[in-house]
Write a protein that binds this DNA or RNA. Structure first.
Length: 383
DNA sequence: CTCTTAATAT
DNA sequence: CATATTAAGA
């Protein structure tokens, strides 16, 4: 009954959309091998259909996974946000979304949604009291708010940022943050005396560096760099650092952060394998797997179904995001599958690696309340 | 006290 | 550069 043309058109659009998505996820083919494969299949199927349709029935639905329903073509199509095609603002978040929709899965992504959330602004040490040891008054940092880190901030969050500080941190965003920071703690007061410097001093050798906190901005840059480099698994700390162009950031810091990131990134495939597992091989992917890089927001958004939220993030991202996108990993094997399900072993006496939900750091309510917040609000800005 | 995360050691 | 270990902070 429906017009063929109509169907055709839709199929075409769908196809295009899929291809678009495929491009996006290609970068993460390691992390989402299945995803990529599925999309590819879908595309092929669609194309085939397109080619055959003209001559005759469109009945053959080889298309993707859709069951044999008559309306072969795109049932899912409707779920897919059409808007995209034109520009790429977001990244793969969309892709996840589309997949998810297919399944209609109900995965809650709450837990994983963002470890990132924890990271706030640059909090360097929680502000030592001025009188205590080193007077670090508001020295340098001012550079620019747009920058990535803010030296000492303690409060954060949207709520009320203290206006007092000269440095207004501003949510900034939009746009390119081309300007990046500079100063930073390096301030060695070099010579002279007075300034507020920090302690340099001879501490023999170990004095642990004050923790550098990864602000959302910083993390954003980090992710950004990661993307340009083709994923967390191929990127190397040095490259990342260079790409981030954050002054004062050391290789080690990046390395450490990368380590953590990878740790979290690796897929903790859920125990879907149990004997009579209800769900077959669907594309549930996202739900069960730790979403790779920059898609936490997506996840949150996805679940709800709203597209909006995510958008915000793009501001920063957008400018640079796509251009590079160079990477094709040479490595042939994408043989990563979903398996391996390990429970944490926690402290035994030594080696302990973890994995598990990340409670947020910054806010630290730690309460169940979190559930409520999740979408909308907070997360958005980052990336 | 536990857990996450950054620093440092290997 | 990758991992492992140690430790700070919450």
């Amino acid at each position: 009954m429906m017009n063929y043309t109509d169907n055709l058109q839709r199929c075409k659009e769908y196809c295009e959309a899929l291809e678009e998505e495929r491009k996006k996820i290609q970068v993460f083919h390691r992390e989402l091998p299945l995803c990529l494969q599925l999309v590819t299949q879908a595309i092929e199927a669609c194309k085939q259909q397109l080619s055959t349709t003209s001559t005759e029935n469109y009945g053959q639905s080889e298309c993707s996974e859709q069951t044999s329903s008559d309306g072969p073509v795109i049932e899912e199509y409707k779920f897919i946000p059409i808007k995209r095609t034109s520009s790429f603002d977001e990244e793969e978040q969309l892709s996840n979304k589309s997949k998810k929709n297919n399944v209609g899965n109900e995965e809650k992504s709450t837990k994983k949604s963002d470890w990132l959330k924890s990271v706030q602004l640059w909090n360097e040490s929680p502000d030592r009291s001025p009188d205590k040891d080193s007077p670090r008054k508001g020295v340098v940092e001012v550079k620019k708010n747009g920058g990535a880190f803010h030296p000492f901030t303690k409060e954060n969050k949207i709520s009320g940022i203290s206006p007092q500080t000269a440095t207004v941190r501003v949510s900034n965003s939009t746009a390119t943050s081309s300007t990046v920071e500079t100063a930073n703690a390096t301030t060695s007061t070099g010579g002279g005396g007075g300034g507020g410097g920090r302690k340099e001093e001879k501490e023999g050798q170990s004095q642990r560096k004050p923790r550098r906190c990864w602000s959302p901005e910083l993390h954003r840059r980090f992710l950004h760099a990661l993307q340009q480099l083709g994923g967390a698994h191929v990127a190397t700390p040095k490259q990342i650092r260079e790409l981030m162009k954050v002054d004062g950031l050391t290789n080690d810091e990046v390395k450490s952060h990368l380590q953590k990131y990878r740790l979290h990134t690796r897929r903790p495939s859920p125990a879907m394998a149990s004997t009579g597992n209800p769900h077959p091989p669907q594309f549930v992917v996202v739900g069960g797997i730790w979403v790779p890089p920059p898609e936490y927001a997506a996840v949150a958004a996805t679940t709800t179904g709203e597209t909006t939220t995510i958008a915000s993030g793009n501001g920063i991202y957008a400018p640079v995001a796509t251009p590079a996108l160079p990477v094709q990993k040479p490595s042939p094997s994408g043989s990563l599958t979903i398996s391996n399900n390990k429970q944490q072993q926690k402290q035994s006496h030594s080696s302990n690696s973890e994995e598990r939900s990340h409670s947020d750091n910054g806010v630290h309510s730690n309460s169940p309340a979190t559930s409520s917040s999740t979408h909308t609000t907070t997360a958005s800005p980052a990336f």
